[in-house]
């Protein structure tokens, strides 16, 4: 999944994606990464409310095209009200609704979910977890599966935001993913099999086109314009302890993806890249 570009899209959308990207950047060749979105509008909720969710496989920065998702293997939320409280898991598969989701140039199969408010009724942290079906990446002739976490807090009472969930691969926050000022940094540790992954390959993208869940699409209007293609997908390495630190220069959602964390996994006789994604939200300091 290294620096996958929009022209990797299979089918007739490929040329459109290439053309749009070239026009957009004035001829430069952009590189964009696949990211599994597990989106909800707000990460830090003053009070409980029902949370709309969108599960979309896309390129969050340039939104060149959106890729079809299969039925997820798992979709649930882990909640904890206070650091010493019991952790609870609520399965959310019953709330999945298949939809066609429009990117700027393409549309693809995705999912939305509207769990009732009772699911997020209490104070505390809610870590939404999605294990999507493996996605076949034709260009690389392999599968990609991105186990994705999005952490939401209700009321300011923290829970298990900094605890591993025992996933095969995951990015474990060292800072609250829902409480970050613009201009700050966010830190996390990349784990595979519960162990830190030294020098893990990391990609970072800003969610540049806000999802509009009611309209099943991304906002066609981009929030920022990169000065050059290197700024679309920021590629870094974890340190020797598997720790990642990123800056947060703009309000909104930031995706962190640790690539290919498995040890030779296969799916349908092809390589499977098992990735971990974590979404982090930054807020402006305003009155």
């Amino acid at each position: 999944m290294k620096n996958r570009a929009p022209w990797h899209a299979p089918g007739p959308n490929r040329r459109i994606a290439v053309l749009a990207a070239l026009l957009w950047l004035g001829g430069a060749a952009p590189a964009a990464a696949h990211f599994q979105l597990l989106y909800t509008p707000e990460a830090a909720l003053p009070q409980s409310q029902a949370l709309p969710l969108a599960l979309v496989f896309s390129h969050p920065f340039n939104n060149g095209y959106t890729m079809s998702m299969g039925e997820p293997e798992a979709f649930y939320v882990v909640s904890q009200r206070g650091a010493e409280a019991v952790r609870e898991t609520t399965d959310l598969m019953e709330y999945l609704e298949p939809v066609m989701w429009s990117g700027v140039d393409t549309s693809a199969e995705a999912f939305v979910a509207n769990p009732p408010r009772r699911v997020t009724r209490s104070l505390g942290d809610y870590t939404f977890v999605l294990t999507p079906a493996p996605y076949y990446e034709e260009q690389e002739d392999k599968y990609i599966q991105q186990i994705t976490k999005t952490v939401v807090n209700v009321g300011g009472l923290p829970g298990a935001w900094d605890e591993p969930l025992g996933l095969p691969v995951e990015i474990v926050p060292l800072d609250k993913p829902y409480a970050n000022w613009v201009g700050g940094v966010f830190r996390a540790v990349v784990l595979a099999g519960g162990e830190p992954v030294p020098h893990a390959e990391i990609e970072i993208e800003y969610l540049n086109h806000e999802p509009q869940i009611d309209q099943r699409r991304f906002d066609p209007e981009a929030r920022v314009t990169p000065p050059q293609s290197s700024f679309i997908t920021l590629s870094i390495r974890a340190n020797a302890l598997g720790e990642v630190t990123i800056g947060l220069p703009k309000a909104g959602w930031w995706g962190i993806c640790a690539l290919d964390l498995d040890d030779g996994l296969m799916h349908n006789d092809r390589d499977l890249s098992l990735d971990a994604v974590l979404w982090v939200k930054a807020a402006d300091m305003t009155r």
Binding site: R81, G82, A83, E84, A85, L157, P158
Partner: peptide, 11 residues
């Protein structure tokens, strides 16, 4: 009613 503290401490 539910309670706690911002450091996650129990009420």
């Amino acid at each position: 009613c539910e309670g706690g503290f911002s450091d996650g401490a129990s009420a």
